[in-house]
């Protein structure tokens, strides 16, 4: 497989296709959340719909309001996380979503409209999302530098 640019719809679609078939993902059970992943000026939305992951598309900044929550990290943090996952086959302790959420002054997740119920889905579905990103070890990735 040729290297796929990150961040891009194709990259997240590839990750979703791998994850949907992953028994390790399915064992964590159902989830229901529309999540926007923000890296620099790129916004990719994905609908985690029970055990499906679909409607992956690039969206505008304004569409963040429609998401249950946004995962927002600086490009170098995204790269650090994905490099670590590639190296270890999964996120090591310093690079899990939970660790990253605690590491910085501001959490990496939020609901744009300050809806705590939706923002808390980050915690409710955290094991599933960790498996999702751990599967990035199987995606040949080429980093492009989005505008921060």
């Amino acid at each position: 497989m040729a290297d796929i640019e990150f961040p891009s719809v194709e990259w997240f679609q590839t990750l979703a296709d791998i994850t949907k078939e992953d028994p390790g993902y399915r064992k964590f059970g159902r989830l229901n959340a529309v999540i926007v992943f923000k890296c620099g000026d790129k916004h990719i939305s994905a609908n985690f719909d029970v055990l499906n992951i679909h409607e992956i598309r690039e969206v505008t900044e304004n569409a963040r309001r429609d998401a249950d929550f946004v995962i927002d990290m600086e490009p170098d943090v995204w790269r650090g996380m994905l490099d670590d996952i590639k190296k270890n086959g999964h996120a090591s302790l310093d690079w899990t979503l939970n660790t990253l959420d605690l590491r910085f002054d501001e959490p990496i997740h939020r609901n744009e409209l300050q809806d705590g119920f939706k923002a808390d889905m980050f915690f409710r579905y955290n094991p599933s999302l960790q498996v999702f990103f751990d599967n990035a070890s199987k995606v040949p990735t080429k980093f492009v530098a989005p505008v921060a």
């Binding site: 939970n98 605690l102 409710r124 955290n126 094991p127």
Partner: peptide, 26 residues
């Protein structure tokens, strides 16, 4: 639990804490 999932002294401690968080959040 969130802190034990990061600072837990063993993988078992970190996994136990991390797995309990979604239960608490429901």
């Amino acid at each position: 639990l969130r802190y034990l999932a990061v600072y837990g002294p063993s993988e078992a401690d970190r996994v136990l804490a991390a797995r309990l968080i979604p239960d608490r959040m429901r």
